[in-house]
Computed example of a mutant assay.
Amino acid sequence: MSNVTRLRHVLPMSSDINAAVITLDKAIADAVDTAKAAGLPQGLIVSLLHGHAHAQTHQMVTQ
């Protein structure tokens, strides 16, 4: 796990990192809004987000 960075250790974050976080957050929020508007059940949206978070965590700890 040497490639995992704890954000509290790199504060203050660079403007590039802040911009990337804001962009990612907006993209996720927009995708959730689109899914809700399309009628996807909230539980399905949550389970998909949880699955992606789990997969990314697994990828971080195994590399």
Score class of each variant (00 low, 15 high):
36 K>V: 03
49 L>V: 03
58 H>T: 14
49 L>T: 00
15 S>R: 11
23 T>S: 10
29 A>I: 01
29 A>H: 04
7 L>R: 05
56 Q>F: 10
25 D>H: 07
58 H>Y: 12
44 L>R: 08
6 R>Q: 10
19 A>P: 00
50 H>S: 14
33 D>Q: 05
20 A>D: 14
15 S>C: 05
51 G>N: 05
55 A>L: 11
24 L>G: 05
62 T>M: 13
4 V>F: 05
1 M>N: 09
35 A>E: 03
23 T>W: 04
42 Q>Y: 02
39 G>S: 04
22 I>D: 14
46 V>M: 06
13 M>V: 14
55 A>M: 08
41 P>H: 11
40 L>E: 11
31 A>I: 00
40 L>A: 09
28 I>M: 06
29 A>P: 02
55 A>C: 03
32 V>T: 01
13 M>H: 09
35 A>C: 02
2 S>D: 14
6 R>Y: 09
43 G>W: 00
54 H>C: 07
41 P>Y: 07
20 A>Y: 04
27 A>G: 02
60 M>T: 04
55 A>T: 12
20 A>L: 08
6 R>G: 01
1 M>T: 07
7 L>A: 11
16 D>N: 11
2 S>A: 14
21 V>Y: 06
16 D>V: 08
25 D>L: 09
51 G>Q: 05
24 L>H: 13
43 G>L: 05
2 S>Y: 05
5 T>L: 12
24 L>T: 13
41 P>K: 14
20 A>I: 04
39 G>C: 03
50 H>W: 04
45 I>D: 00
37 A>Q: 08
20 A>T: 06
2 S>H: 08
11 L>V: 06
1 M>V: 08
23 T>G: 07
3 N>C: 10
30 D>H: 01
14 S>L: 03
5 T>H: 12
11 L>P: 00
63 Q>Y: 02
54 H>P: 01
49 L>Q: 04
15 S>P: 03
47 S>T: 09
5 T>A: 08
16 D>W: 02
16 D>L: 09
63 Q>L: 07
17 I>M: 14
26 K>I: 02
37 A>I: 01
54 H>S: 14
16 D>Q: 13
4 V>R: 10
17 I>D: 13
28 I>S: 02
10 V>S: 10
28 I>H: 03
61 V>T: 11
15 S>Q: 13
63 Q>W: 02
25 D>Q: 13
45 I>N: 00
18 N>Q: 14
41 P>F: 06
31 A>M: 01
35 A>S: 06
19 A>Y: 04
26 K>V: 03
54 H>W: 08
19 A>D: 12
6 R>H: 09
3 N>Y: 06
5 T>D: 10
40 L>G: 00
60 M>H: 07
29 A>L: 05
19 A>L: 09
5 T>E: 12
50 H>D: 15
62 T>C: 05
